[in-house]
């Protein structure tokens, strides 16, 4: 149960960070926090129910997160190379 509370705490911190940080790197970090909070809650649910299924899912999440970090960081580096900044408030071209 405590792990669930920890997970919720972790998610909230991540959400807060994603909303307040302006640097793409820190926003990315916060999103990672939220992702891991989700993984943590899955594991705690798995302990509560006594089934290992959720733990398998979490293994997958970790593997995918590794790939995702590579892609995400690559994108941020590319953006920085082009624009000399990673502040998301200045990247407003993404609109219809």
């Amino acid at each position: 149960m405590i792990w669930l509370i920890a997970s919720a705490l972790l998610f909230s911190i991540g959400a807060y960070g994603a909303l307040t940080r302006r640097t793409a790197i820190l926003m990315f970090l916060s999103i990672e926090l939220m992702l891991n909070a989700a993984a943590l809650s899955l594991i705690s649910f798995s302990r509560l129910s006594g089934s290992l299924d959720a733990q398998v899912v979490v293994l997958f999440i970790i593997a995918i997160a590794a790939a995702e970090v590579a892609v995400g960081l690559g994108l941020i580096v590319a953006i920085f190379r082009r624009r000399e900044t990673t502040s998301v408030d200045e990247l407003r071209q993404l609109r219809g």
Partner: peptide, 13 residues
Amino acid sequence: ETGALRFYLAGLL
């Protein structure tokens, strides 16, 4: 559609 990323994120949350 402002283009502001954090605005979108706030919407999502």
